[in-house]
Design a protein around this nucleic acid. Structure first.
Lengths: 253, 253
DNA sequence: AATTTTCATTTGTCAGACAATTAAAAGTCT
DNA sequence: AGACTTTTAATTGTCTGACAAATGAAAATT
């Protein structure tokens, strides 16, 4: 592993890339120990702070973990689903918030992805997951439930549906998509009437899952997608109108 | 923003988290400039190298970019689809390679996700994307095509299918899943007979897309998924048998 | 044999310094 | 006055050298 002093990138970025490539390429295996910072500094012919900055870059991506003390050092991390997951959610959330993706597009994607696990969920669902979904539906009917509580319950409900497909990769991908959508969903306030309709759709999904009826699951998810889109359109239209009114008032004064 | 000296985490990790939370929470907006490293060091009551390590962590996640010179500094980055994408692929690829996910599970997930864009692809596909897919099919029929060339063409083909759904979020999620699977797919050598069958299935997909027939697209994708799984099972079974034979030989000597 | 102490190694943090870069401000020339 | 050049101040990138804190191994002690 060498770095190119002519490249205009930072040394620390180059070093991080070199080590990252070695990990991805398989030259370094899980739980292998990297040379100490002092040794790396010598190898790459840079100072220790520069090496440290490179290592922090890798640590930020959970590629390595570090341990102090004798026989400590930097070790190649085995990326767990949880870590991969939280990273994906961070990225996706920022992507959505920073690129003004329309709610419709995000919503369409989210429910399309969720529908993709319908056939496996219908086949493989367990009583456990069904019970979780029923419990969340019940929670959603409580009149005192706050908006945050409602949204959290919604996430749990959909997560249980996804989990019932019993495919870790699908779970990882979908949970990321569902959670990345949350900030957008939280912008919607759900009236009692809205909640009633959504609960009815959730019940449809649970019923269909209980009967292992794939098509009915997909159908209910599609209905939920359409209803959510509609709801959001109204919310955003109202906000837009409100904003325009204020602007007009300002213009008059 | 403050850090807690009693926490056992590194200062640099805590500082990175504080800034990251401020970005995600919306206190810091795209293209805002962070205080200079010296100012941050003063604010957080740590030294500049420590601040720098925190900033490198954020840079590794593309949350900030830095610029040298007067009026330079660290700026909040607008995460692009491309960046988010490459990060996701890195994470997913490592996740797959480090957690010995079974090929079946990964394959099932990959094609399930791809099926989820079938309804939109059928509705919205353009002549452009169809032409790309036909062109790739044609390339796949060339007898001199290498295994790498075959796999690359396969990626382009499926990417065109995904793009034809015209939903940026779906594209982002699916392209990540498809590309993360590539290293696993590359472990399979495709015989002439395999290729012939796959080309026929690709043609089915393209035909169905041309006729905007959603169900036929899904059906062909399902067939492709099953065929790929089957192929992989045989390949891995052969490898396993080979390994066992060698082990037996060793045991005899 | 079990426990405690010492010790070498390694990461985490700091202070201070200088180089490289860069855009604004000041100066200079036509 | 306007175009061009030079200066300057701010800021990141890197280096040196140092010390603190943690930690497991080895040595010493009971």
């Amino acid at each position: 592993m060498k770095i190119d002093p002519t490249k205009n990138a930072d040394y620390s970025a180059q070093i991080a890339k070199a080590i990252r490539d070695a990990i991805i390429g398989g030259q370094l295996n899980v739980n292998d120990r990297l040379p100490s910072e002092a040794e790396l500094a010598e190898q790459f012919e840079v100072s220790r702070p520069t090496v440290r900055e490179a290592l922090k870059r890798l640590a930020a991506q959970s590629l390595i973990r570090t341990q102090r003390g004798a026989f400590g050092g930097a070790f190649i991390n085995q990326i767990s689903y949880e870590e991969a997951h939280s990273q994906q959610i961070t990225t996706s959330t920022l992507l959505l918030s920073m690129n003004d993706v329309s709610f419709d597009v995000a919503c369409e994607a989210r429910f399309a992805l969720e529908r993709s696990c319908a056939p496996f969920a219908a086949q493989r669902r367990t009583a456990d997951q069904l019970a979780t979904m029923r419990a969340e539906i019940h929670r959603q009917t409580q009149p005192g439930l706050s908006d945050e509580g409602w949204c959290a319950s919604d996430v749990t409900f959909h997560r249980a549906l996804v989990e019932s497909a019993h495919n870790v990769i699908l779970s990882y991908q979908l949970a990321g998509a569902v959670e990345a959508m949350q900030p957008l969903m939280n912008m919607i306030t759900f009236t009692a009437r809205n909640r009633e309709k959504i609960i009815s759709l959730h019940t449809d999904i649970a019923d269909a899952l209980e009967q292992r009826n794939q098509q009915q699951i997909e159908h209910a998810l599609l209905a939920l997608s359409d209803y959510t889109k509609n709801l959001a359109d109204n919310v955003f239209a109202a906000k837009q109108k409100n904003k325009t009114d204020i602007d007009n008032q300002k213009a008059q004064t």
